[in-house]
Computed example of a mutant assay.
Amino acid sequence: MNNNNNNNKSPFDILGVNRFSTQKEIRRRYLDLCKKHHPDVSTNKTIDFREITVAYELLTNSKKNNNTTGVNWEQVQKTSINTRTWTRNSYFLGFGLTAIMILYLTSGKAPPQALLPHERTRFDFTAKEEEERQQKRDNNDTTTAPWQSAGMTFREWRKK
C-alpha cells in the first residue's frame, strides 16, 4: 500500500494495458485482476484492490471524456469502502436474522392468523351465536350424505 509509488503510476500501468487498448480489453484485464486481487479471495496485501478499481473507473470515464489525469490516492482511500467489514457485518446480520427466525418458529406459538375484512365479519360471533350454531350442527345428522338418506346414488340424486 505504498501511495508514493502508486501516485507516479498511470491507470494504464496499474491495469497493465497499453494506451491504445479497447474498452473490451480494459474490461477483460480489470475482471482478471479482480479475480486475483479481490479482498475476499486474496490475502495479498501488496496490491490494493481499490487502486485497480479506481484505475478502471478512470479509464472507462477517460475514454468517454478524454481525460487521463493522475489519481489522488489519498482521496480514494478516504472515500472508499472497506469490503471486508461490510462482508463480515452482512454475515453477522444474516446469521442473526436466521437465529431469530428459528427461535420464533420453534417457540411453539402459532403465528396469529390474519383475516381479510370479509372473513372477520364471517367469524365475529358472540358466544350465544356460537352455541346456536353448534346446536344446529349437533341436531343435523351429518354422518350420512343426503343421497344416501334418500336411498339413491349420487347421480340419481343430482339429476333430481
Rank of each mutant, 00 (worst) to 15 (best):
Met1Trp: 05
Asn2Gly: 10
Asn3Glu: 13
Asn4Asp: 04
Asn4His: 09
Asn6Ser: 06
Asn6Tyr: 07
Asp13His: 13
Leu15Ile: 00
Phe20Arg: 15
Phe20Ala: 12
Thr22Glu: 11
Lys24Tyr: 05
Lys24Val: 06
Glu25Trp: 03
Ile26Lys: 05
Arg29Ile: 01
Arg29Tyr: 00
Arg29Ala: 02
Tyr30Val: 07
Tyr30Asn: 02
Asp32Val: 07
Leu33Arg: 01
Cys34Ser: 12
Cys34Ala: 07
Lys35Thr: 13
Lys36Gly: 07
Val41Tyr: 01
Val41Lys: 04
Ile47Glu: 03
Ala55Cys: 05
Tyr56Glu: 00
Glu57Gln: 03
Leu58Asp: 08
Leu58Trp: 07
Leu59Phe: 03
Asn61Cys: 01
Ser62Tyr: 00
Lys64Thr: 05
Asn66Ile: 00
Asn66Trp: 00
Asn67Thr: 02
Asn67Ile: 01
Trp73Cys: 07
Glu74His: 12
Ser80Trp: 14
Ile81His: 08
Ile81Ala: 04
Asn82Ile: 09
Arg84Met: 14
Thr85Pro: 08
Trp86Tyr: 10
Arg88Asn: 12
Arg88Gln: 15
Ser90Val: 10
Ser90Glu: 11
Ser90Leu: 13
Tyr91Lys: 15
Tyr91Asp: 12
Tyr91Arg: 15
Phe92Val: 10
Phe92Pro: 11
Phe92Glu: 15
Gly96Met: 05
Leu97Glu: 11
Ala99Met: 08
Met101Tyr: 15
Met101Ser: 09
Tyr104Gln: 12
Thr106Val: 11
Ser107Lys: 05
Gly108Leu: 01
Gly108Thr: 00
Lys109Pro: 05
Lys109His: 06
Lys109Asn: 09
Ala110Gly: 09
Ala110Gln: 14
Gln113Thr: 15
Ala114Leu: 13
Leu115Pro: 04
Leu116Pro: 04
Arg120Tyr: 06
Arg122Glu: 06
Phe123His: 12
Phe123Arg: 14
Phe125Ala: 06
Thr126Glu: 14
Ala127Asp: 15
Ala127Trp: 11
Ala127Ser: 13
Lys128Phe: 05
Glu129His: 03
Glu130Ala: 06
Glu130Arg: 07
Glu130Ile: 02
Glu132Ser: 02
Arg133Gly: 05
Gln134Met: 04
Gln134Ile: 04
Gln134Arg: 13
Lys136Pro: 00
Arg137Cys: 04
Arg137Tyr: 01
Asp138His: 09
Asp138Leu: 13
Asn139Val: 13
Thr143Cys: 08
Thr144Tyr: 10
Ala145Lys: 14
Pro146Asn: 13
Trp147Asn: 01
Gln148Glu: 05
Gln148Met: 04
Gln148Cys: 01
Gln148Ile: 03
Ala150Met: 08
Met152Pro: 04
Met152Trp: 12
Phe154Glu: 12
Phe154Ser: 12
Glu156Cys: 02
Glu156His: 02
Arg158Gln: 08
Arg158Phe: 07
